[in-house]
Simulated scan of single mutants.
Amino acid sequence: MSAKPLLLLAIALLMFPQIAQTLYSPALADIGEAFGVGPQAAAQTLSVYFLAFAFGMVVWGRVCDRVGRRPTMLIGLGIYAGASLLALQVSTFEGLLVAQALGAFGVAVGSVVTQTLLRDRFQGAELAQVFSLIGIALAAGPAIGLFSGASLVHAFGYRGVLGGLLLLSLGLWLWCWRVLAETRPAHLVNAGLFETLWRMLRDRDIWRAALLVALFNVALFSYYSLGPFLFERLGLSGQWFGYSGVVLALGSGLGAWLNKSLLRRGFSGQRLIVVAAGSGLIGGIGVWLTQDSAWFVLAMLWVVLAFGMAIPNILGAALVNYADRLGTAGALFGLMYYLLIGGGLMLVAWFQALGQTLMVCAGFSLVLALAKQRSRLESA
């Protein structure tokens, strides 16, 4: 499979978990009404999603090293389609959570196996450039998810979102079945899961990378978790929340484009992570100051710009010392940061404080990024 078709399919596969998350956000208020639960309980569906997603990352990463990238992808997407069908049938909130967890477990294949496919084909600076290019395309994900989700909820309620996700998963499964080629290297180290886990747990750089990925994601998805209720409190309909995704997509796309351009001009990825953390802090302060009006969406632009700049550089450099076991290491790395994201979003749902959450995430990100930059300068 040549580079261009692989990149197109990789973009679609990486967009799918993102769209599945953001498509669901406009349905939270309708889910709360349909099942008689409050905002805190409804927002927990995203926390359940991330926790189940984390364990799916481990399973699919391990399986793709053992049996191959292609069959693993087909199995995972098939499970997601089955979970979406189940969610359409349930009549209790607990049943919906179970279906949500099963779907998140299945769709995790789109993240870990796709990243492994890309790491099979690209390395070093080229890989960072690929992640940046994909980041520009992924910037449209929140806009597509929020706008489509709001439209589907307006027309069909939360079941419209579930039906849309079912159709998307079936379409992706057919695309992979027809064109996805196997990229698993012929000779891989038979790396033990616990051996690799122990090595990674002792790796300070892995912990720093996992924390950074988690902090930038918690900042981003705290908006998707709390945004519907903020718009409701301001007297604005769920459709306006969907429209806000278009604005945020511009910020994320700009961040990814700036990252790609600055990398080409010789800026280091680590330096750009520091800049991104600073941007996130500016955005967090702005949201905190303006969250009693719809202007807080403009302040969120700084937060999504930070996400678009930081994530490609963090992911591109995270596993450079684990090239002989990419599937397993990628799975464990994903487990680490998705558990952190899930735990963080549980706290976000509990405290219901968007501005403060953004400032805390950006502040910790800036401290971690500066500490890494200082250690590199000292060792140079």
Results as ranks from 00 to 15, higher is better:
Met346Phe: 04
Gln115Val: 07
Ser225Phe: 06
Val153Lys: 02
Phe229Thr: 03
His187Cys: 03
Asn313Cys: 07
Leu332Trp: 01
Asp30Val: 09
Leu46Thr: 13
Arg62Trp: 11
Val304Pro: 00
Arg265Met: 08
Pro39Phe: 02
Ile79Val: 02
Arg70Val: 02
Gly343Ile: 08
Gly103Val: 15
Phe241Gln: 01
Thr45Ile: 02
Gly251Ala: 09
Leu301Cys: 03
Ala191Gly: 01
Leu88Gly: 06
Gln352Val: 08
Ala52His: 03
Tyr80Asp: 01
Ala249Pro: 00
Tyr24Ile: 07
Ala349Gln: 00
Met336Lys: 02
Leu332Ser: 00
Ala256Ser: 06
Arg159Val: 12
Thr22Lys: 00
Leu236Val: 08
Gly36Asp: 08
Leu358Val: 08
Gly106Cys: 03
Val130Thr: 06
Pro26His: 08
Ile134Lys: 00
Phe267Thr: 15
Arg271Gln: 10
Leu254Thr: 12
Ala42His: 10
Pro228Tyr: 12
Pro228Lys: 03
Val320Ala: 12
Leu168Ile: 04
Ile311Ala: 09
Gln18Met: 04
Val161Thr: 02
Ser261Asn: 15
Leu226Asp: 01
Gly124Tyr: 09
Leu85His: 03
Ala349Thr: 08
Ala276Leu: 13
Ile206Met: 10
Gly36Val: 07
Ala294Pro: 12
Leu358Ile: 01
Phe16Ser: 10
Arg202Tyr: 12
Gly163Phe: 14
Arg202Ile: 09
Leu230Asp: 05
Gln44Thr: 08
Gly253Leu: 07
Leu165Thr: 06
Gly145Gln: 02
Ala371Tyr: 15
Gly284Ile: 02
Leu258Trp: 07
Gly253Met: 13
Val367Glu: 01
Trp207Cys: 14
Phe16Pro: 00
Leu368Ile: 13
Ile75Thr: 14
Tyr24Glu: 06
Ile282Cys: 14
Leu9Tyr: 11
Gly269Val: 03
Gly160Ile: 05
Leu272Cys: 07
Leu188Lys: 06
Leu86Val: 04
Pro228Trp: 06
Arg208Asn: 10
Gly56Met: 15
Gly106Tyr: 04
Gln239Leu: 14
Tyr338Val: 02
Ser2Gln: 13
Leu77Phe: 00
Trp177Met: 12
Ile134Val: 05
Leu167Cys: 10
Leu289His: 07
Leu377Cys: 11
Cys176Leu: 14
Ile206Arg: 14
Gly242Glu: 01
Phe93His: 09
Arg376Met: 10
Tyr49Met: 11
Phe93Gln: 04
Ala52Pro: 04
Leu188Met: 08
Arg264Ile: 15
Arg184Ile: 06
Glu378Gln: 12
Ile314Ala: 13
Lys4Thr: 11
Tyr243Arg: 01
Ala41Cys: 05
Ala323Ile: 13
Trp350Pro: 03
Leu354Ala: 13
Leu230Val: 14
